[in-house]
Amino acid sequence: MRVRQAVRTRAVEVGLGLVDQTKIITAASELARNTLDYGGGGEVRVDVVHEGARKGVRLSFEDHGPGIADIAQALTDHYTTGGGLGLGLGGAKRLSNEFHIESTPGVGTRVTIARWK
């Protein structure tokens, strides 16, 4: 809930419309849950970013969990290792303007997303 509130605050601050706010908040919620459920917890950064005339919100989720052995497979809809619907990572990617994931088995995972105005 704290992540959702922080993301909402930053999204409003940069002037994202309601649809874009909902998209970035939903993606953040999915990634925060993954960080807890699969990564054993971790850290999230919520930043307002400016690139030229555009403004946005960039989120970075990092854990030191078991990592993801096959990122392409993990991004495939309905693939899950935890019994869920298997839409979290792929859904977060579709809800974001930018999506980057890096993971090393045994070391952890970092997912960075952004939504631009």
Rank of each mutant, 00 (worst) to 15 (best):
I71Y: 12
E30I: 02
V3G: 13
Q5K: 14
I25A: 11
H100Y: 07
A11C: 10
A53D: 12
G15V: 11
A72V: 11
L95A: 04
E102F: 06
L31I: 01
R8G: 10
T76C: 06
V48E: 04
V46E: 08
L75K: 09
Q73M: 14
F61L: 05
R115V: 07
I113F: 03
L59N: 01
E51I: 02
L18Y: 08
E13H: 08
S103P: 04
L36T: 05
E13F: 05
L59I: 04
R2Y: 10
F99L: 05
G15K: 07
V7R: 10
V7P: 12
A114V: 04
G52N: 11
K23W: 05
L95W: 03
E30V: 03
G82Y: 11
T35F: 01
A74Q: 11
G90A: 13
L36V: 13
D77E: 13
R110L: 09
H78N: 14
R8S: 12
R58G: 00
S60K: 01
A28P: 01
E51V: 08
D70L: 12
P105N: 11
K117Q: 13
I24F: 07
A28M: 01
V111F: 02
K55Y: 11
Y79G: 00
K23I: 00
M1E: 15
R115S: 06
T112G: 02
L95P: 00
G39Y: 03
T76F: 04
E62K: 15
Y38M: 10
S103D: 07
D37F: 12
G86W: 08
A28C: 05
G56V: 05
V12D: 00
V19H: 10
V57R: 00
G17Q: 10
V19D: 14
R110H: 04
L18N: 07
R94G: 12
L85A: 14
E30Q: 07
E51F: 09
D70I: 12
T76M: 13
R94C: 04
D20F: 06
L36Q: 06
A53F: 06
Q73R: 15
L18A: 13
V48C: 05
A53G: 07
E98R: 06
G39H: 05
A72C: 03
L85T: 14
